[in-house]
Simulated scan of single mutants.
Amino acid sequence: MSGHDVLREWALYCAAMGWYVFPLVPATKRPAIRAWENRSTTNHDRITRCWDSGAFNIGLATGPSHLLVLDCDTVKQPGEVDGAEALAALAAERGVELPATYTVTTPSGGRHLYFTLPPGVRLRNTAGHLAPRIDTRSGGGYVVAPGSTLPEGGYELEDDTDPAPLPAWLLQALCERPTTTSTTSAGPVARPSAYAASALRGECDEIRSAPPGRHNEVLSRAAYRVGRLVGGGLLDEAHARTELIQAARTLVTADCGCTPPEVARVVDAGLAKGRTQPRTVTSRQGSEVAA
């Protein structure tokens, strides 16, 4: 069976599971089409025509598929805890066991754990929210489906158990706002000022339009500037962090090697540095004054 045939059969298999698929550039994790979430499909004929025309890897749009996928990554430095260990620790803290569920191994040695969402529940992607080395993909996100291959290896089906319902404790943990500690933060901000909210939107727009080759620079600078507002008590850090990471989703899907854990690391470092140089805004003119 040719590479085209194998990938087509995997794409059709995913569609038969009720999962919406779309093509990725061959041998990469990058979408081969624009508006991939809206154009993802379970239609047999569309899938057949697409994969007959090229050996595309398979993107699985988690939102339309009503899935949440836990992406448990491997460690990069000795002594760190990997995603699978962190997830097991979270379960142990709550005195529960993780259910067996559909599991795919990744070329880097990580694992994708598939869960179904309760009716009416829609979750967003997260990066490091549950724990370091654990990201999630749901509404607005995608994972590389089994059968796909990268130069360093393939996405292999490890456990074909039907996806388990997302455990209630995991749903609760994903809905909790992350807590942060800081020696300079003045505490949560219930409602940011118009200036601070506008500044955050502007920095997020800068991130989304970051030119190739400057992703890390633009993201780090934006996080630093936002961190200054957090340090000045003008923005809630958890909210700002979430907005910055969501804006950086476009960097993750670009052909630059950016990963969700790296994005989270850069954002956290920029925010922490910015907090040490807090910024305030005069209430009358709205002009910026360094604290």
Rank of each mutant, 00 (worst) to 15 (best):
D268A: 15
D73Y: 09
T250N: 08
G202I: 03
R124H: 13
T105P: 06
L235I: 08
R241P: 00
V104M: 07
T42G: 08
G154V: 09
W169K: 09
V266F: 01
T42Q: 10
G257Q: 04
P167M: 08
L24P: 05
H112F: 02
A173R: 10
L24N: 09
R284Q: 06
A254H: 13
H44A: 15
Q172T: 15
M17D: 01
S198I: 03
V75F: 02
P278G: 11
D160P: 10
A88P: 06
R94V: 08
L90I: 03
G79F: 10
R94Q: 15
D135P: 04
L7F: 04
Y20G: 00
C256V: 05
A269E: 11
V143S: 06
I47G: 00
V252A: 07
P278F: 13
R46H: 13
P31G: 07
E176W: 10
V230A: 12
D52P: 04
D160W: 03
G139I: 12
L234S: 02
V263A: 04
G286K: 07
Q285E: 13
L70W: 08
I134T: 08
R228Q: 15
T62G: 14
T28S: 14
T101A: 12
A11M: 02
R30K: 15
E288W: 10
H239W: 14
V21L: 14
P188W: 13
M17S: 07
W36K: 11
G59Q: 09
A272E: 11
A88Y: 02
P64F: 12
A199I: 07
G18P: 08
P99Q: 06
Q172K: 15
L150T: 07
T181H: 14
T126K: 07
I58V: 07
V267G: 11
S182L: 13
G83D: 03
I134A: 03
W169Y: 13
G139L: 12
V143D: 03
G59S: 13
A168Y: 04
S108I: 04
A88R: 12
P163R: 04
Y20V: 01
D159A: 09
A89N: 13
E9S: 09
A145N: 09
L123A: 05
P188T: 14
R214H: 11
Y102Q: 15
T126G: 00
R265V: 01
R30C: 11
R249I: 14
L12H: 10
A186P: 00
A168Q: 15
R94S: 07
G227T: 04
R122Y: 01
A16K: 15
A173L: 11
G120W: 08
P146V: 02
E97T: 11
R265W: 01
A290E: 08
C72H: 01
G59N: 14
A27E: 15
E217T: 10
F22G: 01
